[in-house]
Nucleic acid binder design. Structure first.
Lengths: 76, 76
DNA sequence: GCCCATTTGTACGTATGTATG
DNA sequence: GCATACATACGTACAAATGGG
């Protein structure tokens, strides 16, 4: 899934992966994506790296973050 | 503010700048200086460079670092 | 109102790889 | 070779918001 040795930064790879899961319909609008801790475990990444990926997704309009609750997929 | 082309290393320039802000009373004893991320943004520097500058300030007795909280101006 | 678990936000410490002068 | 600087990444710690019991 994620290639730690490739030229693409891990946070970018993770962001792309989540987008793919959204586009595949696995993660649906209005529903939360896995929590930061969950993503950390799932992909074996550090917290900072996951947060970086989420920040990218917010910037690109894929998700919306609600502090204390979760990160939600936006409608398209 | 900071001159990337001058002979003075950026971390040294930043350290001097923060000292100036302390001496001007803008940053007060017992209060935190801007975070590493904040300083990165404010001055357009890399994380490592900011950390280097903070390390200099610690060495010179200007500030005290508290992990997870911030970097505080010491009383003089 | 109070505690507690969950979740996101912020922050510092350290390390590695790359590039430049 | 060395110092400087940037980007990335992991680790850890503390803070704030939410929701359930």
């Amino acid at each position: 899934m994620i290639d730690p040795d490739g030229p693409v930064p891990l946070y970018r790879q993770l962001a792309d992966l989540i987008v793919a899961r959204i586009e595949a319909g696995e993660l649906q609008p209005g529903r939360p994506i896995p929590s930061v801790s969950r993503l950390q475990q799932e992909y074996g990444l550090a917290r900072g790296t996951v947060l970086h990926a989420v920040a990218v997704l917010v910037e690109e309009g894929w998700v919306q973050v609600v502090k204390g609750r979760g990160t939600y997929v936006l409608p398209r």
